[in-house]
């Protein structure tokens, strides 16, 4: 149940981000792939509002919701935490590899190409026309 609500949160955030304008619960419900009770969608959106993912303002008898931050803003923040090596403070994100500076990268690429040519002799030479 909790897992399903989690999936629903992701789905609803996706629709709100795609909407590009303030949306009501009714609008979001219409955009979902599966038919869900109005109250279910309202509960999840209320939860997202309380957790700070959505902002809302009253419009008549209901609310209009907007994302607090754009999807790319969250992505950018997460990436900067990963790329800046936040794991050094013990966060242990286990980033695959840090990026190199251009000079070192070119040297290493040269070394790899040399190893490749050793592995498959003759492959470095251009084939005869």
């Amino acid at each position: 149940m909790v897992e399903q609500l989690g999936d629903l949160e992701a789905e609803i955030m996706d629709r709100v981000w795609s909407a590009r304008e303030p949306v009501a619960v009714r609008d979001v419900r219409g955009l979902l792939d599966r038919p869900l009770a109005y109250t279910t969608v309202m509960t999840v959106m209320d939860r997202l509002y309380r957790k700070g993912w959505l902002t809302r303002e009253r419009s008549g008898r209901s609310y209009l919701y907007q994302p607090a931050l754009s999807r790319s803003a969250y992505t950018a923040r997460m990436m900067s935490e990963v790329l800046s090596g936040a794991e050094d403070r013990g966060l242990a994100l286990l980033h695959f590899v840090e990026t190199m500076n251009p000079a070192e990268y070119e040297t290493l690429r040269g070394a790899v190409q040399w190893h490749e040519s050793q592995r498959t002799p003759g492959s470095e030479r251009t084939p005869p026309a």
């Binding site: 790329l83 840090e98 990026t99 190199m100 500076n101 251009p102 070192e104 990268y105 690429r109």
Partner: peptide
């Protein structure tokens, strides 16, 4: 090697 390629925008680490 491919993922260590220097990013276009930022300076990579040595």
């Amino acid at each position: 090697l491919r993922l260590a390629a220097p990013p276009v925008s930022a300076l990579g680490m040595g």
